[in-house]
Amino acid sequence: MIQLRELHKSYLVQGNNIPALMGINLSIKKGEIYGIIGHSGAGKSTLIRCMNLLERPTTGEVMIDGVDLTKLDDRKLQEQRRHIGMIFQHFNLLSSATVGENIAFPLKLAKRPKAEIKKKVDELLKLVGLEDHRDKYPAQLSGGQKQRVGIARALANDPKVLLCDEATSALDPQTTNSILALLLDINRKLGLTIVLITHEMQVIRQICDRVGVIDGGLIVEAGDVVEVFLKPKHPTTQEFVEQVADSHELREAVAYEKASGNRTIARVTFLGEQTYKPILFQTMQETGTVFSILQGTISRMKDTPYGQLVVELEGSAEQNSQTIEKLRQRGLEVEVI
């Protein structure tokens, strides 16, 4: 659906070329929610704006549904952009227009008939839950309501792709959750391909299928969210995972327990239906191993339940090794810390 090939973007600053993106290669499947996560200045906003050529790449290809946008003239590019919706961090609504008028704006630009515009606006107001706010102005809306208007406006031309540029970073946590739930609902109802950039791992974990981690203008790690989240390889990815893993408290607990004697501390990961089965307890009973839980969580990544427990095994070295091997044989991921 979306393919970026050897994408480079540089800016001329005081006579010097400053690279923002360096050889980005990405493939995003039709109908998936793809997250791009990175720190401020990593290049993520530049990357997403290159996808609809709001920023024109210095070199490289931007293929959307088999069409290379970089090869199009202005008129054809404008036509292709109608198939690419975009929502922004700060909403970018017309302050002097009502909610209904904001949603209708791209349809008027496309010179659609009035009856068609009214019908489409009605449909979109219902989709985003703003039927009672049609005649209000942006100043009368909350941040979450403004973003819902932005989403409805981005969907007006029935796009194939929706680009989300930090769409939730100006919102409080509760409102963020409602907007993410709306995007997930839209993805499922419309089969829309969504590309979402953020600096929050919780956002990625909640609705994305796959993720790319960007650092210094490079994609440093990419893959299924479950795989990347549970087995982060690059230091930048590990930093983001720590946002939702209480790792500081864990490091203190591990340091304390290690200082107390020769004990084995392991992180046990459950995935899917394993999460709700007493595999750990049954294994410890079989091997006669005494254990204590230092840290634990059960959560979901989009539709996939998972759990992680950090446990201290208090048996002999041989007994602990046997226990770990049995856990692995039963399909659990076990990492000795």
Rank of each mutant, 00 (worst) to 15 (best):
K146Q: 00
P173L: 15
I186F: 00
E6I: 09
I2G: 12
A20E: 14
F229V: 15
F88T: 02
G217Q: 02
G288R: 06
L94S: 02
I103K: 11
L12K: 05
A156T: 11
G35E: 14
Q89V: 03
L26G: 03
E239V: 10
E242K: 15
R188G: 12
L271D: 09
I186M: 01
D215V: 05
A42R: 01
E335C: 12
L107D: 03
M301N: 03
L93G: 02
A245E: 05
I18G: 00
Q174H: 02
R328G: 03
E79Q: 15
I186S: 01
L53S: 10
K9V: 10
G150T: 02
Q329Y: 09
F229A: 15
D246F: 09
R148A: 11
S142P: 02
H133K: 15
L309H: 15
G31S: 13
F240S: 10
G41A: 14
V244T: 13
Q274Y: 02
I214T: 02
P19A: 09
H199S: 00
I207N: 08
G315E: 06
I186A: 00
N52L: 13
L196F: 14
E242Y: 13
T175S: 13
P235I: 04
E166Y: 09
G307M: 11
L313I: 09
K160M: 15
T283H: 10
K189P: 05
I293V: 00
V195S: 07
R251L: 05
T176W: 06
P278H: 12
D209I: 10
G43M: 03
P57I: 07
L250N: 12
T323I: 08
G38K: 04
I298Y: 10
K233V: 08
V244N: 09
T237V: 12
K233H: 04
E333A: 11
Q202T: 10
N25H: 06
S27F: 15
N16H: 15
Q80I: 08
T323A: 06
C50R: 10
E325L: 02
D246P: 03
T198Y: 09
G144L: 02
M86V: 05
R153I: 01
D122I: 05
F91D: 00
L141D: 08
G288H: 06
L155Q: 02
K233E: 11
V13L: 10
Q243M: 09
I33L: 10
M1A: 14
K146A: 00
L280F: 14
K258D: 04
N102I: 01
V268A: 05
H248Q: 13
L313T: 06
I194K: 05
G60W: 11
F291T: 07
I36M: 01
D74R: 07
C50F: 12
D209Q: 11
G38N: 11
D74K: 12
V13S: 04
L230V: 05
A317H: 10
Q147Y: 00
V203F: 12
V334K: 04
I279M: 14
L155Y: 01
G288V: 06
A110W: 15
S321D: 12
P106A: 08
A266E: 10
E221Q: 08
E123T: 06
